[in-house]
Design a protein around this nucleic acid. Structure first.
Lengths: 219, 219
DNA sequence: AAGTTATCGATATTATAATATCGATAAGAG
DNA sequence: CTCTTATCGATATTATAATATCGATAACTT
């Protein structure tokens, strides 16, 4: 933020820390705090003090004050703005399987600025029903509905083998950002963003850690 | 891998690429291929050629052959080993809400070496039932069951406000690695790994990208 | 058999992010 | 009012990962 209102380029990594800061700072505010220092945040979230200070400074309108810290309200406001929590984006979900249904039913996305308006599925048995209040349409309607509703975000929760064709359809329908839960790589044009939710990759880290821990005990 | 059988330290990032390689290479093998070159993989997955070559080299027993590539079977075997797909780890899940149920019902974890054996929930109405064949126990049984079954992985799918206490209980019960789906930071002892599934962080990237795309069209 | 070429391994370079250091400054104590 | 101290901003350093470059080598072509 800072003065003029906009740039202060924020790094990808920092952007991903913002939700944690936001959550923690809101908690502080509820307890009546109005100012917060970087070291306190760092300790609470298990981060490096300098890193936190830089992140907070980037989200502060003016400057932090020595011996005191940063203004809470400013930080929270600017973080929410940077995270897009203020202007909510409409999205569609493709693949109303168990994971898709869970995501449709999760209320937490609303406060993150994501509003799922509809689902699509290839299974005729699901079409016409509604899940957590969201209507399920046939795949054939995807282009039409996305176009008319001006949808820019697509969520993919279909099996891996179906993911690429679905992705292509979403792109053709005008979607600019894709949240992919299928365990596969998706090829898209250069200006489209794919954010893959890497469950298998996460598991890889867990399993690897576990093996190392169990081995060091008895080598 | 390479000769002796073990080390070749693999970086965190590379480890997270392995599932994508594995999936793609299996596909090639099904089509009858026996050898694969780094540039082909790089093109298919949208990665840098040198990066892929280094990753594959680390997963190859001997060396790749110029003009040809790497032996498929070796790569797949070593990757599955590095990913822990061969020896499956038992895990418990805490929080049988909609996301928890979706994860319990997802069959794909088995082939990633994760075996969810039971769920725990604070809601008495759920206790005693079973979800996708997995029994739901009361929280009070957590320590006992984890200890007796020698569980080392815990999956947290409770609301954010309940996550830290649940995490503490899991650690006390001997869990060494935690897969956290609650949108909050978890504090743990140094030797415990927390892998947080960052939905809010992913959304932050999506929203950010979207804003930039929409702004550059009409600045 | 000789020449061409795609790929390899190794090393060097660059990019990105995390962390350490240090003088400056404002809050609070005495 | 002066002293102490926690925190700040800025700069420098280090860590990690991605990418570029180049000679060497094995497959294929002619």
């Amino acid at each position: 933020m800072r003065e003029g209102g906009s740039p202060t380029v924020i790094s990808k990594q920092a952007l991903q820390r913002l939700p944690y800061y936001t959550r923690f700072l809101r908690g502080l505010r509820e307890q009546g705090a109005t100012i917060v220092a970087a070291p306190a945040v760092a300790a609470a979230l298990g981060l490096n003090e300098v890193q936190v200070r830089k992140d907070l400074a980037a989200m502060s309108n003016g400057y932090g004050k020595p011996k005191a810290g940063f203004i809470l309200d400013e930080l929270i406001e600017n973080m929410e703005e940077a995270l897009g929590y203020h202007n909510s984006d409409d999205a569609v979900l493709v693949g109303a399987g168990s994971l898709g249904r869970a995501l449709l039913g999760y209320g937490g996305f609303a406060e993150c600025g994501l509003n799922m308006v509809a689902a699509f599925d290839a299974n005729p048995a699901l079409v016409g029903s509604s899940i957590s209040g969201k209507p399920v349409f046939p795949m054939s309607k995807l282009g039409d509905i996305c176009g008319r509703m001006n949808i820019h975000i697509g969520v993919i929760t279909v099996p891996a083998c179906a993911a690429q064709p679905v992705c292509d359809e979403l792109v053709a329908a005008g979607v600019l950002a894709i949240w992919n839960f299928a365990p596969t790589h998706l090829s898209v044009p250069a200006n489209i963003l794919v954010q893959s939710e890497n469950m298998a990759a996460s598991l890889a880290l867990l399993s690897n850690h576990l093996r190392q821990r169990l081995h060091e005990d008895m080598p």
